[in-house]
Design a protein around this nucleic acid. Sequence first.
DNA 1: AAACCAGGCAACCGCTCTCTG
DNA 2: GCAGAGAGCGGTTGCCTGGTT
Length: 199
Amino acid sequence: MDKRTCDSQDVEVRKGPWTMEEDLILINYIANHGEGVWNSLARSAGLKRTGKSCRLRWLNYLRPDVRRGNITPEEQLLIMELHAKWGNRWSKIAKHLPGRTDNEIKNFWRTRIQKHIKQAENMNRLSSNISEHNNIQQASTSQTSTSLADSIETYSGNNNNNNNINMGTTFHHQGNFPNENIWSMEDLWSMQLLNDANN
DNA sequence: AAACCAGGCAACCGCTCTCTG
DNA sequence: GCAGAGAGCGGTTGCCTGGTT
């Protein structure tokens, strides 16, 4: 490949946040010419961006059918079900959520769901330490804690392996832990829906 | 009021897959 | 069947914003 050509192109390529002008150029170009080969589209439109960058911007942000705003409980439920089934196949999951992008779902998962799982795992460690310390004096209470912990661990473990899991027995938050506000009502509602769906 | 921190999200990077010649 | 180019995907990063101290 001609290095000089590469270098001269590299100098031109813009990175970072998109400006309103760039958005408008891309929208107008696609409105007039449709989607095509992204690299040539970027050049033809006069954008100093890579085709990859244009594609990402269009698919994740500018497309008219992209839905913005909060993920609904129903969507949360669906995401969790599909993730249990397919693992981190975000684009596959996104196909079942009209208007949602794989990037959005991925971000949602990482920021919301994984946080809950991590916290639950910490609770698990804490509760098992406590129950060890108390030497299983209160068998019924520790059983409740353990069943949650097991479910979360089962979920996390299977999640890492991208395998199926039985969500029907998962996420019964009993409020036996020090911080009862870890899951919001919205989360609990989602969990309940999830259990109903699997029973 | 200022500094710090954590969460959320847009965008980039690198790898893999698919298509075409 | 092979190589190169482009598209697609998942992981990661960095910035912005709102909340807390």
